[in-house]
Design a protein around this nucleic acid. Structure first.
Lengths: 189, 189
DNA sequence: CGAAAATTTGACATGACTCAACTGGAGTGG
DNA sequence: CCACTCCAGTTGAGTCATGTCAAATTTTCG
């Protein structure tokens, strides 16, 4: 058992042989700070599960980088589009701090779905929850001010937001680091 | 066979008895323009598939409405969070024009997943694709100007954007109708 | 310790918003 | 089918939230 299978077991009940099959396709890896797990042009061959640490995904547009998401303990990351279609990625994925990850290769996962139909359920539910979170994020960007979004962020990642550079939080929220700095300043309240 | 089962059959292969079971839980309905299929406080008891027409979902925040999404031919809509957890919704869903929909009740779908494991796969894939689309939408709001987002919108819904009120397009894009009007004006180019 | 990066601060610029007035077309009732 | 209303859309003036640029300060880390 590891943190990934425990997460799955919380949603769907797996038999011993299924657990074994699942574990046989999971690979573990330590990622150094600033090390890349994916770069544009590469196909995202594995889906990444963060055991402990913090990864981010971002892309370049007109020479500027834009962060799409962070992944902290017990969450997944990668370039979903590239992973699903096995096409070249447009995203970077790198580590903001030393991070332990588990990975499942696309080719193995495809086979595993046949062997363990309950995995389809697990990932269906995982995707559903991720979709709800993304819908809420879209609502927040439309309805909340920059300051409110920052407050939501710190509330959502209470254990992480101080270890993520402020300029990255600003970037993720869609504002400039200078502006984040001013709204964080107490006498702007 | 109907448009919904055809859509599913395009992704997963269903046996005759599975098709039959699926069809037995699908109900059809015509929705008038401006008619509601969901209101805040109600539990979203069914997932909605648009056969032909156009629905929108939106919510109220500080007395203002904010559109979350549109659903046109062959797409799904509802309040996903409310549907999945069977909790009170925060969204309205109504019709922008006379629309034909098919619906599957939550209680029936839960049973159907047991009976037809391939449905899990279908919805997994559906959710994955929706998630990719939402990620791209988030990227666009961060990286593109209001005008570019409007151009993306018209490109994405070439057959629908002229039948959606401009103020609703503006609202969906997160800009004011006045501003959309000015950026549409040729001499602002 | 020292260099490089992150954050802060401030002056100024601008994309997008607000409000209000005007125009035109769609829907409705007579 | 006309007349009336009433939204939707446009236009413009003034404003505000947030961006840009640049310099000062603090933090990080080799």
């Amino acid at each position: 058992m590891n943190q990934l299978t425990e997460n799955i077991a919380r949603i769907v009940r797996l038999e011993d042989h299924e657990l074994k099959a699942l574990n046989s396709v999971i690979t573990s890896r330590e990622v150094d700070k600033k090390e890349f797990l994916l770069r544009p042009g590469q196909v995202c061959k594995a889906t990444i599960f963060v055991v402990k640490g913090c990864l981010r995904s971002y892309y370049l547009k007109d020479g500027e980088y834009q962060i799409l998401e962070f992944a902290v303990d017990n969450w997944w990351i990668g370039d979903l589009k590239s992973f699903l279609r096995q096409t070249p990625s447009e995203l970077f994925v790198d580590a903001l701090e030393p991070t332990q990850v588990l990975r499942i290769k696309y080719s193995k996962l495809e086979l595993l779905y046949e062997e363990i139909p309950k995995l389809e359920r697990f990932f269906r539910i995982l995707m559903e929850n991720a979709l709800v979170a993304h819908q809420e994020r879209i609502m927040h960007t439309h309805t909340l001010s920059a300051r409110q979004r920052y407050e939501m962020f710190t509330a959502k990642y209470p254990n992480f937001y101080h270890s993520i550079p402020q300029k990255d939080i600003a970037n993720y929220l869609g504002i400039t680091p200078e502006y984040l700095s001013t709204i964080r300043n107490p006498n702007s309240h």
